[in-house]
């Protein structure tokens, strides 16, 4: 079943191209499916503190992996047939799955599951589009087992939680041997499957501001079917406007599945800011977003189709935000 239906195909198609360039043997998951191996590891640690995790990761440089839900990692180990010395399970670290709001900021623990996010009253009230995105990930089973941190650290261009977090200008709090650091999510992803994390660091927390009262935000995902499907294109938009003039005061556009990493459509944003929000300006912004995306073709959709859909979805998302703003009394 998983055979004709590769899951991480967006990133894998890109990754594959890269391995090919490096002169390594290209792996074809379809024709070599009979060779898929059972993922294996020699030790399994269930750590109780981030420090403990970092220590083990440092000791076993490069030969150990963090496992949160394992929904990406184990499937990938199986498809690519690699084993490691140790897995470090961080889901038992007390408090690492908490979702709290304090002083206008929302703190999301790295091992919060999509289910936690979609049901969180804090998010439903103050960052609804993130709860929306979480409720559309995979299947009920995957939403119970996967995690926010895994979704981001796996760094798939199709990670559903990335676009909504990008429009909130989220910060990633990272713990490592030399202490903690904070990185804007915008510079967290460095390529398909790649992040700024070094092998002994873990992502602890994502921090976002609450949605401004006079703004609205939305998330739209286009898949081939409703359940268990990665996005062909996903779009998150955050919008605030001057109500009298109907001019755009604040706009952020996050895109998934259409570039090597999740991205912001910054030219489209720059075009729209200060402009009157009408059919023409919205359509032009959508076209600008299309030009900024660099989608690939794979088994699920062609790059032309994906690019076309960027335009459609960006326009739709901006209109949806507008509708929400018009319904709001501020």
């Amino acid at each position: 079943m998983g055979v004709g239906w590769p899951r991480n195909d967006v990133s894998q198609a890109v990754l594959k191209r890269k391995t090919f360039q490096k002169g390594k043997v290209m792996r074809d998951p379809v024709s070599k499916s009979h060779l898929w191996k059972k993922p294996c590891w020699e030790k399994y640690f269930r750590v109780k503190t981030p420090g403990e995790a970092v220590q083990i990761l440092e000791e076993l440089q490069g030969e150990s992996r963090v496992i949160a839900g394992g929904t990406d990692l184990l499937a990938r180990m199986r498809q690519e047939g690699f084993g490691v010395k140790a897995l470090v399970d961080i889901t038992c670290i007390p408090g690492l799955g908490e979702i709290r709001s304090e002083d206008g900021l929302i703190r999301l623990g790295a091992v919060a599951t999509p289910k936690d996010l979609s049901q969180s009253s804090v998010l439903r009230e103050k960052a609804f589009c993130l709860a929306q995105a979480a409720s559309q990930i995979g299947t009920p089973q995957i939403r119970n087992l996967g995690t926010l941190g895994g979704n981001l650290c796996n760094a798939s261009p199709a990670a559903d939680l990335a676009p909504p977090l990008l429009i909130f200008e989220a910060k990633a709090k990272i713990a490592g041997g030399k202490g903690e650091r904070e990185v804007p999510l915008d510079s967290f992803f460095t390529g398909p499957g790649q992040t700024v994390l070094n092998p002994s660091e873990i992502l602890k927390e994502i921090i976002i501001p609450e949605l401004r009262l006079d703004a609205s935000a939305t998330f739209l995902k286009l898949g081939r079917r409703k359940a268990a499907d990665l996005a062909l294109v996903s779009v998150a938009v955050l919008l605030a406007m001057d109500r009298k003039e109907r001019t755009c005061q604040l706009i952020r556009i996050g895109l998934g599945s259409v570039a090597p990493t999740p991205i912001r459509a910054k030219q489209a944003e720059a075009f729209l800011i200060g402009r009157r929000l009408d059919d023409r300006s919205i359509q032009e912004a959508a076209q600008s977003a299309m030009r900024e995306s660099q989608p690939i073709s794979d088994v699920r959709a062609s790059s032309q189709y994906r690019r076309e859909m960027v335009g459609v979805m960006v326009e739709r998302a901006i209109r949806k935000c507008l509708e929400q703003l018009e319904g709001k009394d501020v």
């Binding site: 079943m1 184990l74 289910k115 995979g138 299947t139 089973q141």
Partner: peptide, 27 residues
């Protein structure tokens, strides 16, 4: 599938529906 796609391995673990093919026994 052993990859979390098909759900026939689902069990309820601590009240939550999960795919047991993606859960190391140690977890």
């Amino acid at each position: 599938c052993r990859e979390g796609e098909c759900g026939v391995c689902s069990v309820i673990l601590n009240g939550k529906l999960v795919p047991s093919c993606l859960i190391p026994a140690m977890k």
